[in-house]
Amino acid sequence: MARIFITGSADGLGKAAAQTLLTDGHEVVVHVRNEQRLTAVQDLVTQGAVVLVADLAVLEQTRDLARQVNSLGPMDAVIHNAGVYSEPSVLPVNVVAPYVLTALISRPKRLVYLSSGMHKGGQPNLDDMDWSGQRVTGTYSDSKLFVTTLAAAIARRWPDVFSNSVDPGWVPTKMGGPNAPDDLRLGHLTQEWLATSDAAEARTTDGYWHHQRRVARHPAADDLKFQAQLLDALARATGVSLP
């Protein structure tokens, strides 16, 4: 059985993935934004999950979350699930936090980053991005292009780690809305599969997945120059260098 850390586990796809993985017998570490959200994961804690608290919109709290995770011992997989749609915290939560946690958490065997089909509308332009969230700069689509590019960059730099990004589809979560047309179960199945499965396809890297199928991603995610620019921008903005 694997030990898996999932960010943004209070509701939606993160909580659904945590529930399934616990049911399957895995050891799960969940995360909520603040202490008021602890009640949202009490059912998971009752089933054996460990819960950590940090606001991913705040850089120092994100750094501290990495320290909390490392204090528990090595993880087999990390699912970077947390995400927001509204400004101004889109870049800090959707991009900066996955980068900082990737850099500071002891390297797991598998990394899974939540992207979106909307990443294809993102612009591969890092000019004037405010990574702190003090100003409204990048869009949600931009943020998902950036995190998809981050996943690809990690796959290239860390060949001993399976690093993949996932389009969960438009599913009926709080973010997706009640009328979203896609299957909620399929929305979190691929993340669980990539984090734990011994299937040959799941034990691969540098993929962009939708419902357990590799699909095409924005060409910018494969651009080595853009990957390097993104990593450099994030390192400068956070003071955290990727090992």
Rank of each mutant, 00 (worst) to 15 (best):
I4S: 04
T7K: 03
S9N: 06
A10G: 14
D11L: 14
G12W: 12
L13V: 15
A16S: 13
A17K: 09
Q19V: 14
T20L: 13
L21N: 13
V29E: 01
V29A: 10
V30G: 12
H31Y: 04
H31N: 13
H31D: 11
R33D: 01
N34H: 08
E35V: 09
V41D: 07
L44G: 08
T46D: 14
G48C: 09
V51W: 03
A54L: 07
D55N: 12
V58H: 14
V58L: 12
L59I: 10
Q61H: 06
T62F: 04
R63C: 00
D64P: 00
L65M: 12
Q68S: 14
Q68L: 05
S71R: 10
L72T: 14
P74Q: 13
H80G: 12
A82I: 02
G83F: 02
P92A: 14
V93N: 07
N94E: 08
N94M: 03
A97W: 10
A97P: 05
A97N: 11
Y99G: 03
Y99W: 08
T102W: 15
T102Q: 13
A103G: 11
A103W: 02
I105K: 09
I105V: 14
R107L: 09
K109R: 15
K109L: 08
K109I: 05
L111G: 06
V112G: 06
V112Q: 04
G117T: 03
M118K: 09
K120W: 01
G121T: 07
G122S: 07
P124G: 04
D128S: 11
D128F: 05
M129L: 15
M129I: 11
W131F: 15
Q134Y: 01
V136T: 15
V136A: 15
D142V: 03
S143R: 03
L145C: 10
F146V: 10
T148S: 15
T149R: 03
A151H: 02
A151E: 00
A151R: 03
A152N: 05
R156L: 08
V161H: 07
V161C: 08
S163R: 05
S163H: 08
N164M: 10
V166E: 05
V166Q: 10
P168E: 10
G169Q: 14
P172C: 15
D182Q: 04
D182N: 14
D183I: 01
H188L: 15
L189V: 13
T190C: 06
T190W: 12
E192C: 15
L194K: 07
A195Q: 08
T196V: 11
E201W: 00
A202C: 06
A202K: 14
R203P: 00
Q212P: 01
H218W: 04
H218F: 00
H218T: 09
D222V: 00
L224N: 06
K225Q: 06
K225G: 07
Q227W: 01
Q227C: 06
A228M: 02
L230P: 09
A233G: 13
L234A: 07
A237E: 05
A237S: 11
A237K: 00
V240H: 02
S241A: 15
P243M: 01
